[in-house]
């Protein structure tokens, strides 16, 4: 009986998700699309919880729906007053695309069905469980992210770094909003310390329960978003030089830890078993700060004021106006 109820629940949840995605993608009205997309993120968080992926539920709520939602809503605000004319001449023929989409749907279903029939269903689950004791942490997802496949996570930090470098080189940040209403600033004052504490907790707990650097970093970035909404122009970021150091801290510490163990006659990132937990925590703290800084800068949408003040020697300063408008002379 309860089996059947679960199937019903799954059907409703999956159907709702697909329906919401359909409308979000099909709508011509961007505002509705963005709001539906944030809703979709929350539904996905429920699905992750249902499929026993609590780490992902947290990450999806904080990053997939939270930060991505904040970015998209901020982008919507820029969009106001802009005509919706196509920016890009290229569009494919609708009928051809529909045909291709159906073909792809069938092909992917066929391939996955065959894959499931072929597989024993265990995959790497047992392998991870066997070696979990050597990883330095108890949460298996953290063990995969920061030990077994730590190199993936290093490159993932590099992807975040690349995106933020791109954002910083494209143009100046959005102008800040004027200071918000009293209610909002009051709320911000209450929420900020709570979020900082939650971020610290998520970081600490990641070793043995759902949580970790990415969820914690997103929480800290949420602080920046709140501050910005409350009228704080720098969104809590320190000065330019300190911000630059914060951005590179995560990758820097990761690589230095990896190389230090390598110079001790081990492989790159092969942590010694007895201090693996400590090393992972050190890496995670650094990564949290870098991720939060990067996401906060992404929310600003460009270079903060004075970002490139120290980039050139004094005699070149005159040219900076031209460079700020993006010209490469």
């Amino acid at each position: 009986m309860s089996e059947l109820l679960w199937v019903l629940f799954d059907l409703v949840l999956a159907g709702l998700t697909v329906g919401l995605a359909w409308v979000a993608v099909a709508t011509r009205e961007l505002r509705r699309g963005v709001l539906l997309f944030v809703g979709l993120g929350l539904l996905l968080a429920v699905i992750w919880a249902r499929l026993r992926a609590p780490d992902l539920a947290l990450a999806e709520a904080a990053i997939g729906a939270g930060i991505a939602g904040a970015l998209l809503i901020a982008a919507l605000r820029d969009e106001i007053g802009v005509s919706a004319e196509p920016e890009d001449g290229y569009t494919a023929s609708r009928r051809l695309v529909d045909l291709g989409a159906i073909g792809l749907l069938l092909a992917l279903s066929w391939g996955l069905l065959d894959a499931f029939l072929l597989s024993d269903g265990v995959r790497l689950a047992e392998g991870v469980a066997e070696r979990l004791g050597e990883s330095g942490v108890i949460n298996p997802v953290t063990a995969v992210l920061l030990n077994f496949r730590a190199y993936d996570t290093l490159l993932e930090l590099a992807v975040v770094f690349a995106a933020v470098l791109g954002v910083l080189s494209v143009g100046p940040a959005r102008p800040a909003l004027e200071a918000g209403s009293l209610v909002l600033t009051g709320l911000v004052r209450w929420l900020v310390p709570i979020l900082v504490v939650v971020a610290g907790y998520l970081l600490w707990v990641g070793a043995h329960a759902p949580g970790g650097a990415f969820q914690a970093g997103a929480m800290l970035a949420a602080v920046a978003v709140l501050l910005r909404l409350g009228g704080v122009a720098h969104a809590g970021l320190p000065g330019t030089a300190a911000t630059r150091w914060l951005l590179v801290l995560g990758i820097g510490v990761f690589v230095i830890v990896g190389l230090s163990v390598m110079f001790a006659d081990r492989a790159f990132l092969q942590y010694p078993g007895d201090i693996a937990g400590v090393l992972i925590l050190v890496i995670e703290i650094a990564a949290t700060l870098s991720i939060a800084t990067a996401l906060a800068l992404a929310y600003l949408g460009g270079r903060p004021v004075g970002w490139e003040a120290d980039c050139d020697s004094p005699q070149h300063r005159v040219n900076r106006g031209a460079a700020d408008r993006g010209g490469d002379a």
């Binding site: 490139e308 980039c311 031209a322 700020d324 002379a329």
Partner: peptide
């Protein structure tokens, strides 16, 4: 322009 070079190098090395 030194400012554009400062944008170029981190991305290029990455």
């Amino acid at each position: 322009n030194a400012v554009v070079r400062a944008r170029f190098w981190p991305l290029w090395l990455l």
